[in-house]
Structures are given as structure tokens and as C-alpha cells.
Write a protein that binds this DNA or RNA. Structure first.
Length: 320
DNA sequence: GGGATTTGACCAGC
DNA sequence: GCTGGTCAAATCCC
């Protein structure tokens, strides 16, 4: 990692300590984001490959979790250098109740910029809200907000601009503001009780009961799908492959196993992005997951991922 | 019908 | 006045 060399360059003294601290956080953040990218690419490559897909999802989720924990430790007050400012990428609280002001031009310095041929696979879900022709550029610039900008007040935005006609074309992606939506954390944090409740709610919803429908609406279909996907992926990993619950034992929940979300980089994400089904008519596979058997999850990813409130965690969908 | 995208208009900084 | 960023109505698509 570059961190070591940077740390080696810095000498002693309080200023160096601050620099080191910031460098560590910067590199961890970078690693975290790259992991999200890798996860997106891996899941796309392994889509539909059952256990391999689930294993990759689980491992990369764990790598991401490790980064999150390290970031949390490094950014805790006890670790922070005495006079240091909070790191720019660690936006701890959602924006205040006031409507976020328009970004002034002075704020137009991206927190991160990268050139990639796949600007859509960064582990987060985005909604396009504008496109503009920029003078002296050949291609228009597209503006995206986090899909959760409204419901979770996430202020993360990005701009994508094609910069070359190569094959594949290259895009410059600039990221502004940090995610406060914590999408990935919620994707893997559904307690089992919650899951069974969800299944019950779904059954009730199928029966047309308004209360259950309200419950589903409140959580959001996206979260619901991500959570069920995570649980079923874990079930595949822990159970070898598709696990059949023994007849008459345990609580069995029907869990959809769709694709990891990687809709093609084009419009129309209402159905394919949240549901993770990118081909109309392609039915998600259904497996039975023995919920009781999942108690091995008592090693708790949940607690660790709760740190995700402060950091952008990789989500599962990549609508463009 | 509802959600996402498109696109012209508006606003603020330079 | 120009330019870039955002808004919001219109439109599209499932």
C-alpha cells in the first residue's frame, strides 16, 4: 500500500502524527471503496454461478467490514490527533433539517476522482438527475444522486463524463459528499426475527392485508431484497449450497435468490435495480433456508456493520 | 399508476 | 454574460 511509503516519509512531531492519521484514514477509505468496486465487478462476473457468487459476496462483504471497523477505530475521538479536523470523508451526521444548499463552485472539488471504463459499478445505487453539455468537451456530463438521497437524506452525488472513445470508452467519475445512507450495512443486517417477520408480512401482503403491505412499504422493497439476498447467500456458503430444511424441523423461510444487482448501464432501473432481476420474465430462483440453521450467524456481522453509519458502504445495486 | 430518465429552465458563481 | 450544477415538469417504461 502507499500508506507505508507515505508514513515513512513523514517524520515525527504532532503535525506528522496528524498527517499519518489522515493518511491511514485516507488509505483505508480508498481500500474500502476499491473493495466495493471489486465486489461489484466480481458479482457481475459471477452472476448466476450459485455458490461461487455467494462465496465472493460473503468474502468481499467481510473485507468491507474489516475496513469499516478499522475506519471506525481510526476515527474515534481517542485515536484522533488532538487538533485534527474530522477527516473530510467522514461525514458523521446527515445534513441538517434545512434543505441542502446548492453546491457552489468553490465546493466543486471532488472527494474522489477516478477514470474507469465501468463508471456504474461502484457499489452504490445512483439516480440520474441531470445531464449537461460542458463547453470544450466532446461528451455531456451526467449528474447522479444517491438513490437514497431522499429517504435517507444521503447527500452523495457523482458526475460521470466520458473522456474517450476508446473501446471500451473511458469515463471520468467524480464523487462528491459521502454516503450517509449506509446501504450495504442494511443489506446484511436483518435479524432473523426480522426476517421471519418479513416473511410473515409478505404472506399477509399476498393475502391482501393492508398492515403487512404498509410494513413492506416502510422498509422499502430494495432493503427487503438486499437483506433476503444476503441471508440466502450466507445460507449457501454455510450450508454448502442450496440447503433444504429437514421436513418438520426449524422455521423455514422461502428466500429469493436473485442476481446480485448489476443492471446494465442504461436506463430503467425501477424494476431491475431494486429487485436485482435484470431480465424481464426471468424468475428469481427460490430456495428454502432453514432459519434456525442460520443461528451460526451469532458471530455478529451486524454490530460491526453498524459502524457503517459513518462511512459509505458498498451496496448492491448499480443503476445508472 | 408509480418510479426513473430526459431535458429545458433556473440559479449562483466567476 | 457565460458556465456549471440543480430543479422539476414532461415523458417513458414496466
Amino acid at each position: 500500500m502507499q500508506t507505508q511509503s507515505r508514513l515513512a516519509v513523514n517524520g515525527g512531531g504532532s503535525s506528522a502524527s496528524e498527517d499519518e492519521h489522515e493518511a491511514v484514514i485516507r488509505e483505508l477509505t480508498r481500500g474500502h471503496e476499491l473493495t466495493a468496486q471489486l465486489r461489484a465487478e466480481a458479482l457481475r462476473a459471477l452472476r448466476g454461478q450459485g455458490q461461487a457468487e455467494a462465496t465472493a459476496a460473503f468474502i468481499l462483504q467481510e473485507v468491507s467490514r474489516a475496513f469499516t471497523v478499522c475506519l471506525s477505530i481510526m476515527s474515534s475521538p481517542a485515536r484522533a490527533p488532538p487538533s485534527s479536523q474530522p477527516p473530510p470523508t467522514m461525514e458523521m451526521a446527515p445534513a441538517p433539517a434545512l434543505a441542502p444548499p446548492r453546491r457552489s463552485r468553490g465546493d466543486s472539488i471532488p472527494r474522489e476522482q477516478r477514470t474507469t471504463s465501468s463508471p456504474h459499478s461502484d457499489g452504490h445505487q445512483w439516480r440520474k438527475y441531470g445531464q449537461k453539455r460542458i463547453t470544450k468537451t466532446q461528451f455531456p456530463r451526467c449528474y447522479f444522486k444517491c438513490s437514497f438521497h431522499r429517504e435517507r437524506n444521503c447527500r452523495a452525488t457523482k458526475q460521470v463524463q466520458q473522456c474517450s472513445n476508446d473501446d471500451p470508452p473511458q469515463y471520468v467519475v467524480m464523487y462528491f459528499n459521502d454516503h450517509t445512507c449506509d446501504t450495504a450495512a442494511t443489506s446484511g443486517m436483518m435479524p432473523l426475527d426480522d426476517l421471519s417477520g418479513l416473511v410473515m408480512a409478505r404472506q399477509q401482503a399476498a393475502a391482501g392485508q393492508a398492515g403487512a403491505r404498509a410494513l413492506l412499504d416502510g422498509r422499502g422493497v430494495q432493503e427487503e431484497h438486499e437483506r433476503r439476498l444476503f441471508v440466502s447467500s450466507l445460507a449457501c456458503v454455510l450450508g454448502g449450497h442450496q440447503q433444504q430444511s429437514p421436513a418438520g424441523s426449524g422455521t423455514t423461510a422461502a428466500v429469493n435468490v436473485g442476481h446480485q444487482q448489476e443492471p446494465p448501464p442504461r436506463a430503467r432501473t425501477r424494476d431491475d435495480a431494486p429487485a436485482g432481476v435484470d431480465a424481464p420474465g426471468e424468475m428469481p430462483r427460490i430456495i428454502d433456508v432453514d432459519v434456525a440453521g442460520l443461528d451460526v450467524m451469532d458471530y455478529d456481522v451486524t454490530d460491526a456493520l453498524c459502524f457503517g453509519d459513518s462511512y459509505d458502504l458498498p451496496g448492491d445495486g448499480f443503476p445508472f
